[in-house]
Amino acid sequence: MHVAHEFYTRILGFETVFENGDPVGFMVLRKDRAEIHLSRKPDHKASSVNVMHMFVSDAAALYAICQTQGVRIIKRLTDKDYGQRAFVFADPDGNRIDIGERLADTRQP
């Protein structure tokens, strides 16, 4: 859990708002209106599907941070036909995190 905590706080800018256990087995991280709950699970196996989806105000900026920090990118940053700029990365535990930014509606009436 220490590696995940370090990743979400140092790289993604979340702050710890709650911890429980000794050693810590559960924690809550918060950034703006987003909240992430981390649980210790020694036998954790990463899923092959996205386990978290986050909307952000600037997907390109977060993508650049991920690249700079050596985060494993699973799907590169692209503008989707459903109105989002999106990418998928893996956190240190291999969890797939889907990032999206809502784009302005450019359809003509």
Rank of each mutant, 00 (worst) to 15 (best):
K80P: 00
V3I: 15
Q108N: 11
A60K: 15
H53V: 06
T78N: 13
M52D: 00
I97M: 04
E15K: 14
I99Y: 01
M27N: 00
A61Q: 12
H5R: 15
P42G: 09
S39F: 12
R33G: 02
F7T: 04
K80Q: 09
G21S: 06
D43Y: 09
L12K: 01
C66A: 14
A61M: 07
T106P: 01
G100K: 10
G94Q: 06
G13S: 08
I11F: 08
K75S: 09
F14I: 04
N95V: 11
G13A: 05
A59K: 00
F26Y: 14
G13W: 02
L62R: 01
L12A: 10
P23V: 02
M1T: 14
P42W: 03
S47G: 08
V56T: 07
R102F: 08
M27S: 07
H5P: 01
I65G: 00
D105I: 07
S39W: 11
P42C: 05
A34E: 08
V3D: 13
I97D: 03
F89P: 03
H44C: 04
K45Y: 05
T78S: 13
P92L: 09
I11S: 02
V51H: 04
M54Q: 00
I65P: 02
H5T: 13
G70S: 05
T78L: 14
V17L: 09
K80D: 07
V17A: 10
T78E: 14
G70R: 02
G70N: 01
H53Y: 10
T78H: 12
H2K: 15
V88H: 00
G100V: 11
F26I: 06
N50I: 07
F7N: 01
L77D: 04
I99S: 00
A64D: 11
D22S: 11
H37T: 05
I97Q: 01
R30S: 07
G21N: 13
R85P: 05
E101R: 02
D79M: 08
C66N: 02
A59H: 03
Q84L: 14
E6R: 09
G83W: 07
F89T: 02
C66I: 04
L62N: 01
K31R: 15
V56N: 01
K45N: 13
P109W: 07
D105S: 06
I74G: 05
S57H: 06
F87I: 05
V24T: 12
F14A: 06
D58N: 13
D58T: 04
V56P: 00
V28S: 03
R85W: 06
H5W: 10
R85F: 03
A104C: 08
K41E: 15
A86W: 01
A59D: 03
S48C: 13
K31M: 05
Q69C: 08
Q69F: 06
G21D: 11
V3E: 15
L103E: 04
M54L: 13
R76W: 03
T68A: 13
K80H: 11
R40K: 14
Y82A: 06
H53K: 09
V24W: 05
T16W: 06
